[in-house]
């Protein structure tokens, strides 16, 4: 009787997750449709269906849907997914629930290099690169910080020490950025501040394609790491005695996490709280820490949450558009605070 029950429990689980995944996918599609339909000009569902079906880019509505709304929605959705997975990886890596992509100084590093380019006359030499300059400099900043962090990671075994090193890197970058802002010319400052607020607007299809392909490849790599990620939940020592090559694995986690976060920061500016809060939401929804479930779960949750936050940012005080970080912070900060108080949700 008992054996029978046990077997049944084990067999039932995948089905429960499958229906959850189906539900989340439906919610994602629904919220994406809302993102496309709602705005300063509302487009009905039948109109949307016609535009997509006939590939209409000529009419005003068609132009809005294909050139503005759809790219923005996709950017928000995949940007949110990447940031969330990046946060999940860092939370597992540091075995600390209060960690996100920003903690390693990834976004601060990106912001620093962007500020150098935007606020100084340094960019004058690179006029040929002008259109991509922000993107390239943000990526450069993210990877430069990552390189320093990895260098430290190779030296120190202790995850907490690395965490503090990341925090200090963040402060350092922030300090330099503040100095640059203080000396910056007024007209340069405005552009920089706008970027720093973070937004998923103004994405081109070409940018989205790059984001989709590279990010997608990294997501596949992350999913392939889910078995050692699970072992890592027991701590480095246990993971090592279970057969995980800790050095290689540490490198891969940080590489993937920084690449995902850096990519999104480069394109959309620093977006706060998604990477920190979404993995917790996913854990609460899927009631597991098993990364084979949690990684796709976090992708879906991150996509939905970020998509909805972007919708709120556009609609709340339309036509004035709020920065995405303010909306994510409204939702994210209470979650972080309740986590700190309750300490109930562990990684």
């Amino acid at each position: 009787m008992k054996e029978h029950q046990i077997k049944e429990n084990i067999a039932v689980q995948p089905k429960r997750y499958r229906s959850l995944f189906v539900f989340f996918t439906v919610v994602l599609l629904f919220s994406a449709a809302l993102n496309i339909m709602l705005g300063s000009i509302n487009i009905s569902f039948s109109e949307l269906f016609r535009i997509i079906h006939t590939h209409d880019t000529v009419t005003t509505n068609g132009f809005i849907v294909w050139k503005i709304r759809i790219p923005r929605t996709i950017a928000a959705v995949i940007g949110g997914a990447y940031l969330s997975v990046s946060g999940l990886l860092l939370q597992v890596f540091f075995r600390n629930p209060i960690v996100g992509p920003f903690i390693l100084g990834i976004s601060s590093g990106a912001t620093l290099i962007v500020s150098v380019v935007m606020l100084t006359t340094l960019s004058l030499g690179f006029t040929a690169l002008a259109p991509f300059l922000t993107t390239l400099s943000a990526l450069a900043g993210a990877y430069a910080t990552m390189a320093v962090v990895l260098l430290i990671a190779a030296k120190v075994k202790n995850a907490i020490t690395l965490l503090i090193a990341g925090l200090m890197m963040g402060y350092l970058c922030h300090a330099v950025t503040s100095v640059l802002v203080a000396f910056a010319r007024q007209e340069n400052l405005k552009m920089f501040v706008l970027w720093q607020l973070g937004s998923f607007s103004g994405f081109k299809w070409s940018e989205i394609r790059i984001l989709f392909i590279f990010g997608g490849l990294i997501l596949v790599l992350v999913y392939a790491l889910s078995k050692p990620l699970n072992a890592f939940l027991l701590g480095e020592a246990y993971a090592s005695t279970m057969g995980v090559n800790i050095r290689v694995f540490r490198f891969l986690i940080i590489f993937c996490s920084c690449a995902l976060a850096g990519m999104v920061t480069a394109a959309a500016g620093p977006v706060a709280f998604i990477g920190l809060a979404v993995p917790h939401m996913a854990r609460l929804c899927f009631v597991t820490s098993d990364n084979r479930i949690l990684i796709p779960g976090t992708v879906l949750t991150g996509a939905i949450v970020t998509g909805l936050c972007d919708l709120v940012a556009r609609l709340a005080f339309s036509p004035i558009e709020l920065p995405i970080s303010s909306i994510t912070a409204f939702f994210g900060a209470p979650i972080v605070i309740s986590l700190l108080i309750k300490r109930k949700v562990s990684i």
Partner: peptide
């Protein structure tokens, strides 16, 4: 003696982590 708090795992799933060296790519 390290403190182990893997998060949301059932006892079965937790003990199953011990199968690590014997299972395939995704465990």
């Amino acid at each position: 003696t390290d403190r182990v708090s893997p998060g949301l795992f059932s006892v079965f799933e937790f003990v199953a982590l011990g199968r690590y060296p014997h299972t395939g790519f995704l465990g």
